[in-house]
């Protein structure tokens, strides 16, 4: 009988010599189907995310126009809303500038130069991008 030195590679060869299974093509088709399903799911998810983002953007734009028109009709209340928005915006900008300063980027990016709406849309875009990236990573793992 052979010694362990000869027997080990022999066993490894036996493991490597697995015969082609009768349903090998069926198995390969199953893997291809699952790959296809994964990419379709990703496509649907991205499409849905884009659609939702678009609807939200249109809704926000219409609401903004409405506030402007309402402001013409009732300047007092619009001014109140605007003041509170500005105050929130200023606070947000200050917090963000503090954060950027800590990262040493404060001198490069001046958020004060951006308008409130620009800042809002910028943040919203960043959040949507982060959520989309996270979801893509998750779908990639399934």
């Amino acid at each position: 009988m052979s010694g362990p030195d000869e027997f080990d590679p022999f066993i490894e060869r036996l493991y490597a010599r697995a015969p082609q299974m009768a349903d090998a093509d069926l198995f390969a088709a199953g893997v291809a189907r699952r790959l296809e399903r994964g990419s379709r799911f990703r496509g649907v998810f991205l499409g849905a995310a884009g659609l939702i983002g678009g609807v939200v953007a249109v809704r926000e734009t219409l609401a903004t126009n409405f506030v402007f028109r309402a402001g013409e009709a009732a300047e007092g209340s619009a001014r109140a809303v605007d003041t509170s928005l500005t105050s929130v915006g200023v606070q947000g900008q200050q917090a963000m500038m503090n954060g950027l300063d800590q990262l040493g980027l404060g001198s490069f990016i001046d958020l004060g130069a951006l308008g409130g709406m620009t800042l809002f849309w910028g943040l919203a875009a960043a959040l949507v991008a982060a959520a989309t990236l996270g979801a893509l990573k998750l779908t990639g793992q399934t």
Binding site: M1, S2, G3, E6, F7, F10, L14, Y15, A16
Partner: peptide, 23 residues
């Protein structure tokens, strides 16, 4: 491996080569 060696003994020659083994 000892058990496999015993089971495969009839089909392994003295050099550890398969005499007639299906994988």
């Amino acid at each position: 491996l000892d058990k496999l060696r015993a089971r495969l003994a009839p089909v392994v020659d003295q050099h550890g080569r398969p005499a007639d083994v299906r994988a």
